[in-house]
């Protein structure tokens, strides 16, 4: 059996590198000595029990959370500490949140053009043309003039993906992008993500959607208690997990 990843364009050089990363929230050791390399064009699914540090890991990669030890680098550059440099880094890293987080007072089109106009200094007309292309690609082009609250959850999440893509990021982070959605909307968002993966986008995806992992991921990273416990290709991970923690976890989610 081949996973989709193997049929895609060859995996490139290391893009995101976490080297001996530790983080504490007060007494709580949320990330423990994390070492993880994600190569260009690779799709990595992060899976693990609630509270294992998956969101924190994601947020650390675009420095929405600081880390206490170790280094994280993007394309060979360590993450900047503050200010303009940090803003520039974040523009290179797209992020999609569980709760969409669209800007409530802006139209769908404005949500997508804000970054390109303010950060990339694109002309409004250029930004709008590109935004419409992206909205078309995620299937919500006809909603461009509406406000976020007028869209369904699935549509909002697809807009959020378009908003991140508009910045032409080097890597996309997804933190449980479908877990706030009704079942019938999950597929429409996953379809967009699979298409993105097939297009060669580097992606780090926190999700419990095994279908997506099997179809699109090159690798599954299993986290528990702030540690990377196991890493494997999706097929091997789901059918023959090595660690007891992973066996236990899979046993629980497969029962449902």
């Amino acid at each position: 059996m081949t996973s989709a990843g193997e049929t895609r364009a060859a995996i490139g050089q290391p893009l995101v590198v976490l080297d001996h990363v530790d983080k504490w929230f007060g007494q709580l050791h949320v990330l423990r000595d994390i070492n993880l390399t994600v190569n260009r064009g690779e799709v990595v699914v992060v899976i693990g029990p609630s509270g294992s540090g998956k969101s924190t890991l994601c947020r650390a990669i675009n420095r929405l959370e600081t880390i206490d030890k170790g280094t994280i680098s993007l394309d060979g550059q360590p993450l900047p500490q503050e200010g303009k440099e940090l803003a520039r880094l974040r523009a290179e890293v797209g992020m999609v949140f569980q709760s969409f987080n669209l800007f409530a007072h802006k139209t769908i089109l404005e949500n997508v053009t804000l970054g390109p106009i303010k950060v990339r200094k694109q002309k409004q007309a250029d930004a709008e043309r590109r935004a419409k292309e992206l909205l078309d690609r995620v299937g919500v082009a006809h909603q461009a003039a509406k406000y976020p609250a007028q869209l369904s959850g699935g549509q909002q999440q697809r807009v959020a993906i378009a908003r991140a893509l508009a910045m032409e990021p080097k890597v996309m982070l997804f933190d449980e992008p479908t877990s706030a959605l009704d079942p019938e909307m999950i597929a429409e968002v996953l379809d967009v993500m699979v298409e993105l993966a097939e297009g060669g986008m580097t992606m780090i995806v926190v999700t419990h959607e095994m279908g997506f992992a099997r179809e699109a991921a090159n690798r599954v990273v299993f986290m528990a208690d702030g540690q990377v416990v196991e890493e494997n290709d999706p097929e091997t991970f789901f059918t023959r997990p090595q660690s007891d923690r992973a066996k236990d976890f899979l046993g629980k989610i497969l029962k449902h």
Binding site: G94, F97, L114
Partner: peptide, 20 residues
């Protein structure tokens, strides 16, 4: 979340305050 999303697309603190 909206403030975080603003920072995540690369807006500076002042921009995210002023725009979002």
């Amino acid at each position: 979340g909206q403030a975080e999303a603003a920072r995540a697309i690369g807006l500076t603190f002042t921009q995210s305050l002023g725009q979002v």
